[in-house]
Write a protein that binds this DNA or RNA. Structure first.
Length: 195
DNA sequence: AATTTGCCCAACCGCAGACTC
DNA sequence: GGAGTCTGCGGTTGGGCAAAT
């Protein structure tokens, strides 16, 4: 089995790991204020943090970045997450892009800890009531995943792209700006049966 | 009161595409 | 054009905490 030693990664031996301290946060924020949120390896070095760039980037994106909303995902946000997940699958960064102030990590966590359970409950209820509907992929998010997750031969992302082609027109609007409220409200009005 | 269980969330890991030299 | 590096992403892990036993 060939190895891929060229990939950059955090050194397990040398780098500081675990929870960030307030002092580390402050140093990181200061350096980013000066140099901007890029060249993360450099940022880590400039900040004098014994952390890898990757870790700094994650900390910035998920915690230190301005305008981050924390906790209390509203009903409207939850509804939007559910709909977007049905549309896009586990593409958390895309979903997060439509929820200002929310991070992909937060949405992923929220999904894994709460929404996936809700869906399973709903599914088992609907199976009990209408067993045939569960065969339709539009009523079964995990079935949609099985298309996107197929990695036999081609890359996973390539397959995802293929599976999305029919939705490109829809996604054109989706990809335009961080939050087009007019479009978003239209999206929220889309007939449930579309999914 | 002590222990176990389950949940939540921050952080880490590995992969793959983009970028740079 | 190719090798090496950086960046971004989704999956997974593990610690802290509260509720249950």
């Amino acid at each position: 089995m060939p190895t891929t030693p060229t990939r950059s990664r955090c050194s397990k031996r040398d780098a500081n790991r675990g929870a960030w301290t307030a002092e580390e946060d402050q140093k990181l924020a200061q350096v980013i204020e000066t140099h901007g949120p890029r060249r993360w390896k450099l940022v880590a070095a400039k900040a004098g943090l014994n952390r890898c760039g990757k870790s700094c980037r994650l900390r910035w994106l998920n915690y230190l970045r301005p305008n981050i909303k924390r906790g209390n995902i509203s009903d409207q946000e939850e509804d939007l997450i559910l709909r977007l997940h049905k549309l896009l699958g586990n593409r958390w960064s895309l979903i997060a892009g439509r929820l200002p102030g929310r991070t992909d990590n937060e949405i992923k966590n929220y999904w894994n800890s709460r929404l996936s359970k809700k869906i399973k409950q709903k599914e088992s209820q609907s199976k009990f009531l209408e067993p045939d509907q569960s065969q339709d992929p539009r009523n079964n998010p995990s079935a949609m995943h099985s298309v996107a997750d197929n990695d036999g031969g081609t890359s996973k992302r390539e397959e995802e792209m293929k599976s999305d082609v029919s939705r490109d027109d829809f996604l054109d609007n989706f990809n335009e700006g961080p939050l087009n409220l007019e479009w978003m409200s239209k999206f929220l009005e889309v007939d449930e049966s579309w999914f």
